[in-house]
């Protein structure tokens, strides 16, 4: 018993000296941010919901873009999301991001749309810990319009 207490004390002291594990709330990665956006968007689109009218959209997309869509530019919303008229997608998966100039991360995203594989590249602007989706590109060849 005499030896147990000092041992426990030593273990306790050791535990205090060990570096703390990283907090779970460590900064979100760009792919996590994009994954969260698509998960939220899918949920907010249920029923008659319009995610663009929901202020939570501002967590993911800059205010100027949201205002443009709210002001009636429906084409703009489709161009921004790079999806077809139905924009009903399933199982979006955000893949490993890679860095680009201008504090941007490019995040490849794959999903199913109308039974077909669909791929987009989501450009995320990072400013400290804050992130914003500033551009989404499809993978189709250049078109004139």
């Amino acid at each position: 018993m005499k030896k147990i207490l000092p041992c426990l004390a030593m273990l306790f002291a050791l535990a205090l000296l060990l570096p703390a594990p990283p907090a779970h709330s460590a900064a979100q990665t760009a792919e996590e941010f994009v994954g969260a956006f698509y998960a939220w968007y899918a949920e907010a689109s249920q029923g008659d919901g319009d995610p663009w009218e929901d202020d939570a959209m501002l967590k993911y997309v800059p205010q100027g873009v949201v205002e443009a869509v709210r002001n009636g530019d429906n084409q703009y919303r489709l161009d921004f999301l790079q999806v077809g008229m139905t924009y009903e997608w399933n199982s979006p998966v955000a893949h490993k991001a890679f860095p680009m100039e201008g504090n941007l991360m490019a995040v490849p995203v794959s999903m199913q749309m109308a039974g077909e594989d669909w791929h987009v590249i989501v450009f995320v602007h990072q400013d400290g810990e804050s992130m914003s989706i500033v551009k989404i590109a499809n993978i189709f060849p250049l078109v004139t319009l």
Binding site: P62, G64, V134, L142
Partner: peptide, 15 residues
Amino acid sequence: ITKVEDTNYSALYLR
């Protein structure tokens, strides 16, 4: 090569 994308985006995104 089918297209290129740059890192520019519309001023709308900066507001």
